[in-house]
């Protein structure tokens, strides 16, 4: 859970968040590039979640397995939901939705790392 994949996801999300918030501040609607970027981030997050799920089956599990699973489901669903809402909102607010999502995603990844670090054999 602490691998380079997590770091890459967090950095990518933060860079995208800055971009989306800037675009929202400039009163721009999300264009094709923004939507594709969010979709790519969603794929990155999906890979991260799949790796974490595989990790659940190799011996040690997080102490709070149910919470961990809940966070995994939330995390994987996050980018697609934001993308869906942003597509319905072709105004600056669409970019704000994407920006908020990209700010919350790193928090979710950090929480996953936190929960994963407390394990039972």
């Amino acid at each position: 859970m602490n691998g380079p994949l997590s770091v890459a996801t967090i950095v990518a999300a933060l860079v995208l968040a800055a971009w989306f918030l800037l675009r929202a501040a400039l009163n721009r609607a999300p264009g094709r590039a923004e939507l594709i970027a969010t979709a790519v981030l969603g794929v990155l997050v999906a890979v991260l979640v799949i790796v974490a799920v595989i990790g659940l089956f190799d011996g040690s599990r997080p102490q709070e397995t149910a919470t961990f699973a809940g966070y995994l489901i939330t995390t994987i669903a996050f980018a697609p939901v934001a993308l869906y809402l942003a597509k319905m909102e072709p105004t600056r607010w669409g970019n704000l939705i994407l920006g908020v999502a990209c700010l919350v995603l790193p928090v979710l990844v950090l929480r996953l790392q936190q929960i994963a670090s407390v394990t039972v054999a």
Binding site: A82, M88, W93, G94, I97
Partner: peptide, 9 residues
């Protein structure tokens, strides 16, 4: 719509 959709999210 608009900011309302951000709030919804």
């Amino acid at each position: 719509t608009g900011l309302g959709r951000v709030l919804l999210f």
